[in-house]
Computed example of a mutant assay.
Amino acid sequence: MSKAEKTALKFRIAGIRTDEFAILEENYNEKDPIKLTSEINFGLLETEHVLGISLSIRFEQDSKPFIKLAVSLRFEMEEKSWALMVNKEKQEIIIPLDFASHMGVIAVGTMRGILYEKLTGSRFAHFILPPIDLTRLIRGDATLPLVSLQNSETRD
C-alpha cells in the first residue's frame, strides 16, 4: 500500500461505548503522587468491515487505581479501504501505523470528553486526561488475523 493510500483510508465512526468507569475514592490521597497508565487494543469484525479500538486509563497512587475508564470505538471502513488493508494470502489485515495512530487520537479525544462528563460535579472534576504519547503505545502497523474480534495489544 502506497503512502497516499495509507492516508486516504475512508471510514466513519460507527459506535462509541463506555466499557468501564469507576471512582475508587478510598484509594485517593491528595498528597501522594499520581501515575497515569494506559492500554490500547485493536480488533476487527471482518464480516462488517469494522475496525475497533479500545483504550483504557487508570489514575493510580501506590499502584492502586482511584479513577478507571475504558472506552471502545468502532470504525466502519469503506469497502475499498478495507480491501487495501487485507492480505488474503496471510489471512490478516494490516492497519497502517498512520491510520492506527489516527484511530488512537480519535479515541483519546473521545475518552477525554467522556472523562470530563463523568467527573463533573465530583471532587475529582479537576482531573483532565492529559495528552497521551501514542508513539509509546502504537509502535508500528497493527496486524490482526482475519477472524472476528481480537486483537493486538500494547501496554504503557
Rank of each mutant, 00 (worst) to 15 (best):
Lys80Ala: 14
Leu44Thr: 06
Leu51His: 11
Ile93Thr: 11
Thr47Cys: 03
Lys31Phe: 09
Glu26Trp: 02
Ser72Pro: 12
Glu79Tyr: 01
Phe66Ile: 06
Lys90Ala: 15
Val50Cys: 05
Glu89Tyr: 13
Lys68Val: 08
Ile34His: 00
Lys68Asn: 08
Arg17Phe: 11
Ile57Val: 01
Gly52Asp: 10
Tyr28Lys: 09
Glu79Asn: 07
Met85Leu: 02
Lys90Ser: 13
Phe59Lys: 00
Glu89Asn: 09
Glu78Lys: 05
His49Ser: 13
Thr37Cys: 08
Ile40Met: 15
Asn29Ala: 04
Lys88Ala: 11
Tyr28Phe: 15
Leu69Trp: 06
Val50Ile: 15
Leu45Cys: 00
Gly15Val: 04
Thr47His: 11
Met85Gln: 06
Lys88His: 08
Asn27His: 15
Val50Phe: 08
Lys35His: 05
Glu20Gln: 11
Lys64Arg: 02
Ile93Arg: 14
Asn87Ser: 05
Gly15Met: 02
Val71Glu: 08
Leu24Phe: 04
Asn41Pro: 02
Ile40Asp: 11
Arg58Tyr: 03
Leu24Val: 08
Asn27Tyr: 06
Ile57Thr: 00
Ile16Cys: 09
Lys88Phe: 09
Phe75Pro: 07
Ile23Gly: 03
Arg74Met: 14
Ser63Pro: 01
Phe42Tyr: 14
Leu36Ser: 01
Asp19Ala: 13
Val50Glu: 12
Gln61Asp: 00
Lys64Ile: 01
Glu48Trp: 02
Asn29Trp: 04
Glu26Thr: 14
Ile67Phe: 01
Thr47Lys: 15
Leu45His: 07
Ala83Phe: 03
Glu46Pro: 02
Thr18Tyr: 07
Ser72Phe: 10
Asp19Leu: 14
Leu44Val: 05
Met77Glu: 11
Ile53Phe: 03
Glu46Leu: 07
Glu26Met: 06
Glu25Leu: 03
Ser81Ala: 11
Leu73Tyr: 01
Glu39Met: 14
Glu48Cys: 07
Arg74Leu: 13
Ile53Trp: 07
Gly43Thr: 12
Asp62Ser: 13
Phe21Pro: 06
Phe75Cys: 04
Glu92Trp: 05
Ser56Phe: 13
Ile53Asp: 01
Asp32Ile: 01
Leu45Phe: 00
Phe42Trp: 14
Ile23Gln: 09
Gln91Tyr: 08
Lys90Asp: 13
Leu44Glu: 01
Met85Phe: 03
Thr18Gly: 08
Asn87His: 04
Leu55Asn: 07
Arg74His: 10
Thr18Leu: 08
Leu45Asp: 06
Lys90Glu: 15
Glu79His: 02
Trp82Lys: 02
Glu60His: 01
Gly52Glu: 13
Ala83Met: 03
Leu84Thr: 12
Leu45Tyr: 07
Gly52His: 09
Phe75Gln: 09
Gln61Val: 00
Gln91Gly: 04
Phe59Glu: 03
Ile53Glu: 09
Phe59Leu: 02
Met77Trp: 05
Ile93Gln: 14
Gly43Met: 10
Asn87Phe: 03
Leu51Cys: 15
Ala70Ile: 04
Glu78Pro: 07
Glu39Arg: 12
Glu78Ser: 05
Met85Ser: 03
Ala70Gly: 06
Glu79Lys: 10
Val50Leu: 12
Leu44Asn: 02
Thr47Pro: 07
Leu69Val: 05
Leu45Ala: 08
Glu76Gln: 14
Phe59Asn: 01
Glu46Lys: 13
Phe21Gln: 07
Phe59Ile: 00
Leu24Cys: 02
Pro65Val: 00
Lys88Tyr: 14
Glu30Cys: 04
Ser38Arg: 10
Leu84Arg: 14
Tyr28Ala: 03
Asp19Asn: 15
Asn27Lys: 09
